[in-house]
């Protein structure tokens, strides 16, 4: 361990020994950037295909107050996501998802503070801020589980639709809630995209929590203190900010527009 570290330091001219840092970022950070770029393409593809499918469906044209769910046109998001835990049946659009957005932004802020503490070799500070970040991530995931349950179970008046059940088409089927083939909010594609996009993002949050926990554990063991720098915290920080960044886009294009 120690010999390899000193060997790298002793030969800064050795290109293949890791002595060089292209663009003045270390190998790990550069590769994290490239991974995030490829991940950004994945999320863009998902969101843009959401745009395509939404655009190829009919939109609701009437007065917004007279809006009812129908499989014939794409739903208005604020009519779908209008629930808040413990306030059943009250129409409070987008507030719960707004709280989730603030939680994720705050956990991003605590992550930068952890990176800042790492620059100062302040182990206690890194531990404190990383724990807050993990806490924020877990809270976000918990909210998402709540929202998914609400979305899947459904509430209010059932929507009448033709459904394909046990190999037969059933006319005038009452749909409540959502699954991958039929939902009460709109065309099947709406729920499919909801599950896939927020699910894929939620999986990223989950991975972020796992990686953060691992790094937090190493910080607690003093691994990075002995190594002399907290670059690993910076790398997971990059990943965590990216997860926040993706949510900013998902929030706009799935919930607001």
């Amino acid at each position: 361990m120690e010999t390899t570290a000193s060997a790298v330091q002793d030969s800064p001219q050795n290109l293949w020994g890791g002595g060089m840092e292209p663009m003045k970022v270390s190998y790990g950070k550069l590769m994290m950037w490239f991974f995030l770029l490829s991940d950004a393409f994945t999320f863009s593809a998902l969101l843009v295909s959401y745009g395509l499918v939404r655009y190829s469906h009919a939109a609701f044209t009437g007065d917004i107050d007279t809006f009812v769910f129908s499989v014939k046109y794409w739903p208005i998001p604020e009519k779908v996501f209008d629930g808040i835990p413990f306030l059943h049946g009250v129409h409070i659009p987008l507030v719960f998802v707004g709280i989730m957005t603030f939680i994720l932004i705050l956990s991003s802020v605590t992550m930068v503070l952890a990176v800042e503490a790492g620059h100062r070799m302040d182990r206690k500070g890194v531990e404190k801020w990383m724990l807050w970040t993990i806490f924020g991530g877990v809270t976000f995931l918990g909210c998402q589980a709540w929202e998914w349950t609400h979305f899947i179970v459904g509430t209010g008046t059932p929507t009448i639709a033709d459904a394909f059940i046990n190999g037969n088409w059933v006319n005038g089927f009452e749909v409540l809630g959502a699954n991958l083939s039929i939902n009460q909010y709109g065309p099947p594609d709406f729920a499919d995209f909801f599950f896939f996009i927020t699910g894929f993002h939620g999986f990223h949050v989950f991975s972020g929590i796992m990686i953060n926990t691992l790094i937090f554990y190493n910080v607690g063991l003093g691994t990075y203190e002995r190594r002399g720098h907290y670059e690993m915290v910076e790398k997971v920080g990059l990943y965590w900010h990216f997860v926040d960044l993706v949510w900013v886009f998902v929030f706009t294009f799935f919930y607001l527009v």
Binding site: L37, F41, A45, G51, L52, Y55, S56
Partner: peptide, 23 residues
């Protein structure tokens, strides 16, 4: 990091146009 995101802009324009055509 920034230049490759041009492809995303292309993708948005192409697929929104395509969505209108499908409609």
């Amino acid at each position: 990091i920034m230049i490759p995101t041009i492809f995303v802009i292309w993708l948005i324009i192409a697929l929104i146009y395509e969505g209108g055509a499908i409609y």
